[in-house]
Nucleic acid binder design. Structure first.
Length: 575
DNA sequence: AAAGTTTTCAACCGCATGCTC
DNA sequence: TGAGCATGCGGTTGAAAACTT
């Protein structure tokens, strides 16, 4: 049987004559030029509501109350399906609706709620009187995403920590109660408002992931990492934004978050128990937090070298006003969980992961710790763990073989190793953390502050407009973004010769560039597809070059052939 | 000023859930 | 018990607005 609503709402919109029919039959169809569907011969309007329709709906609700939305059309003559009426009422017409932009308090609440709930917009809306789930959803999908693009993490550290602690609590509770009940029952009985997603499939696959500690069934309260894997955010956000706009936006964003910056120097204090925090995400321990907490220079210098780092950490004391730059686009990792605001440290998790990876792993990876529930995060951690494992091997290997690493420069060398490891471990240029090869390059090749400028490098526009002209995806339209001034402020005294190498994701995407993991370095292979796209000459040139260039992750680091790459591949090289 | 691009957000869609008969 | 139905939810879409070049 076909539902009335389905009949009315799901009917084909492309039926010929529908529009005219609708216009004729609906007395409110003066603006109803969006076509509609039919319900028993009655055309139902779709599209934006008119004020007249609103008035009718309001009148109807006054008389009959909310609910029974499918009867609206019958009783009021409103040619709208029940669904549409309900939505209109709930989102726009019902009383006590708050209009206008979210307040800062609301924004923070949304962030906190999302950290624990994930995309449970309706539940979140229940905590925000006068706000609708749609509003919150839109807010998150736009403004928060914008924050991400600006290099700001999805959640402030305190929220991340809070969510992790909650996760830990849930786990502990679960651990205890699981002796008596199944976890499912436990969670239900305790009425956790946390998605109870099991990673049974991952557990099942544990045998093929030997480096992963036992995967416990844990709650998905670690949805704070939602952004890590959400398809919505999983794709790398290319930096095709106009620069001026981005500058303006960054300033606005940073200013808007200035309120949260007052805690910036206490962030590390919050992470005293980083072991525990990271443990909750299944990270192996022990690891030495000193390398970061006690050596900010090291941290700062290397944070940009790891995929998990968003590159906007700074131990300096920036001001929002000082920030006129956006982060390099390649730091716009969707997985950024780094510093909240321009000067914040990264989330405990990321910091932990980062610290761990930056620190030579010691001992066997043994952990009974649960892993995050979110599949994306889990995958990310698995990959990171794998990368870590490789890094461990690479470290010794590189120390003796790499000609690009100065043995004495531990920070650099290790960062390099890590990056190379990641590069070679990720068969696909887009890591499970949402990092593209581009971001890897970028993060592995931070730029020094004195080399950064508000002005784009002259050659930065090499790829501008290449989205179409070059026949590539949007990611091909990569501009070299100015680096984060805050982040780089710490590096003013560094005599870094690092280059800010950006690389169009499109060119790195998929099979275009392949990494030869067998060679032990991040050798780039320009395959035929890429050559075809680029044209024979360019492609072949590139292939030839790449064939002989062990560029590793850091074309700018090493004396590889990057500089001799075709200009189309080069974004710019700082002096 | 105009064209092109990006962002915003209202509305739609499909699916899930729960209630009723 | 299962079909029918109403409602709710989350993801997605697309027109309009805003912005950039």
């Amino acid at each position: 049987m076909i539902f009335w609503e389905e009949m009315s709402c799901a009917a084909s919109e492309s039926e010929d004559g529908m529009l005219s029919n609708n216009q004729i039959e609906s007395p409110l169809g003066e603006e109803g030029n969006y076509g509609g569907s039919e319900n028993g011969g009655v055309a139902l309007k779709k599209g934006p509501w008119t004020s007249a329709e609103d008035a009718i709906l309001i009148e109807y609700v006054k008389k009959h109350g909310e609910g029974n939305w499918n009867a609206v059309q019958k009783h009021s003559g409103l040619f709208r399906c029940g669904k549409s009426c309900r939505l209109r009422w709930a989102n726009h017409l019902r009383p006590n609706l708050k209009k206008g932009a979210f307040t800062q308090e609301e924004e923070q609440l949304i962030i906190q709620l999302h950290a624990t709930m994930g995309n449970k917009w309706a539940q979140m809306a229940a905590h925000l009187p006068g706000r609708t789930d749609n509003e919150i959803k839109n807010y998150w999908n736009t403004r928060i995403k914008r924050h991400q693009r600006a290099g700001l993490p999805l959640y402030p550290p305190e929220v991340s920590l809070q969510a992790m602690q909650e996760s830990q609590r849930c786990l502990n509770t679960d651990r205890i109660e699981s002796e008596h009940k199944s976890q499912h029952d436990t969670l239900l009985s305790k009425n956790y408002g946390i998605p109870n997603v099991m990673f049974d499939n991952l557990k099942a696959n544990q045998s093929i992931l030997p480096y992963v500690p036992e995967l416990r069934d844990i709650t998905a309260s670690s949805m704070l990492m939602k952004g890590l894997s959400s398809s919505q955010y999983g794709s790398f956000m290319s930096s095709i934004m106009h620069r001026q706009k981005r500058l303006r936006e960054a300033t606005t964003l940073l200013s808007s978050f200035s309120g949260g910056m007052k805690n910036e120097f206490h962030l590390f204090d919050q992470f005293h128990d980083v072991n525990k925090a990271a443990q909750s995400f299944g990270l192996p321990f022990p690891f030495d937090p000193d390398s970061t907490t006690k050596n900010p220079e090291f941290f700062g210098k290397n944070q940009g070298s790891h995929t998990l780092a968003n590159g906007n950490f700074s131990a300096s004391k920036p001001t929002a006003e000082a920030v006129k730059l956006e982060l390099p686009s390649l730091q716009y990792s969707e997985t950024d969980l780094g510093g909240w605001g321009p000067s914040c440290s990264r989330s405990p998790l990321i910091k932990s992961v980062d610290t761990f990876i930056h620190s030579p792993p010691t001992g066997t990876v043994e952990s009974d710790c649960p892993s995050p529930r979110n599949s994306g995060l889990l995958d990310a951690l698995l990959h990171e763990a794998k990368a870590l494992s490789s890094a461990k091997n690479q470290l010794s290997d590189k120390s003796s073989n790499s000609s690009t690493v100065t043995p004495g420069d531990y920070a650099d060398s290790f960062a390099l190793n890590i990056c190379e490891t990641e590069w070679e471990d990720y068969g696909h240029p887009i890591s499970p953390l949402g990092h593209t090869a581009t971001s890897l390059f970028s993060e592995c090749t931070p730029i020094s502050a004195n080399e950064s400028s508000l002005d784009e490098s002259p050659s930065a526009e090499t790829f501008t407009g290449s989205k179409r002209k070059f026949g590539c995806s949007a990611e091909a339209s990569v501009k070299s973004e100015p680096v984060d001034q805050i982040w780089s402020a710490d590096r003013e005294n560094e005599s870094s010769t690092w280059l800010d190498i950006t690389f169009p994701d499109a060119l790195l995407d998929s099979d275009w560039l392949e990494h030869d993991s067998a060679c032990g370095k991040g050798q780039v292979i320009v395959n035929d597809a890429m050559a075809t796209l680029l044209g024979d000459d360019l492609g072949n040139e590139c292939k030839q070059m790449a064939a002989g260039a062990s560029v590793s992750h850091g074309w700018g680091h090493s004396s590889c052939s990057w500089n001799s790459m075709p200009a189309v591949y080069q974004m710019y090289e700082l002096p």
